[in-house]
């Protein structure tokens, strides 16, 4: 296999990139200055060699502890449990949460063969006494599998006496009630609160 075919094949493995686009990208890389392509290659090598999971929360990091876990201003007694590291970025964008995180690495899925041992639930349970955690916020996705995962974790946490909360579900800010679907409206009504 030639170097051109080789790179095209590798690029075509990326999400959203078909064989034709991969070929275009390959020829583009050949046309641009060699130094630029070398910098891209070096960035990929550095990424693979240096990025790992945080030893405490399983977020992505280049150091043993991620920037959130090593930030002394964050409240270590409050832990938000998410399915994937990408969910942390979404919550951080909101700028409301000042606690720390725990990345499960997925969700329970009998159909996909993902069980509790495939997630970092054991490490979460160990963190509760170690970090003197007082509240765990379960922020798994509001899907059926996300809900089942939250239920499973809640059951595991119950003997530890820690407060367990679940993120709310309902209408999006700026949305229009008229165009919301029935399921979302039903859940928003169930989760209504006193004013």
């Amino acid at each position: 296999m030639s170097a051109i075919d080789d790179l095209t094949t590798e690029l075509a493995r990326l999400p959203g990139i078909g064989r034709k686009t991969a070929q275009r990208l390959t020829y583009h890389l050949l046309k641009q200055p060699a130094d630029q392509s070398r910098r891209l290659a070096q960035a990929l090598v550095t990424l693979v060699d240096t990025v790992r999971t945080c030893t405490r929360c399983f977020n992505l990091t280049e150091a043993p502890l991620c920037s959130i876990c090593s930030d002394g201003r964050r409240d270590g007694t409050l832990v938000c449990v998410v399915e994937d590291a990408a969910d942390i970025a979404a919550i951080e964008r909101a700028g409301e949460f000042r606690g720390r995180y725990h990345v499960l690495g997925g969700r329970l899925s009998p159909l996909d063969g993902v069980g509790p041992d495939d997630l970092t639930i054991g490490a979460l349970l160990a963190r509760i006494p170690e970090d003197e955690v007082t509240e765990v916020i379960l922020a798994t996705n509001p899907s059926l599998e996300g809900e089942a995962t939250a239920l499973y974790i809640q059951r595991q946490l119950a003997p530890l006496g820690v407060r367990v909360t679940r993120i709310a579900r309902g209408l999006p800010v700026g949305g229009d009630l008229e165009y919301a679907d029935g399921v979302t409206i039903a859940q928003a009504l169930q989760a209504r609160r006193d004013m």
Binding site: P110, L144, E145, E147, A148, L151, Y152, R155, V183
Partner: peptide, 13 residues
Amino acid sequence: VRPGLASDMGRFT
């Protein structure tokens, strides 16, 4: 939708 299936691990599995 059937959210009740996620409210019990026996039903879910």
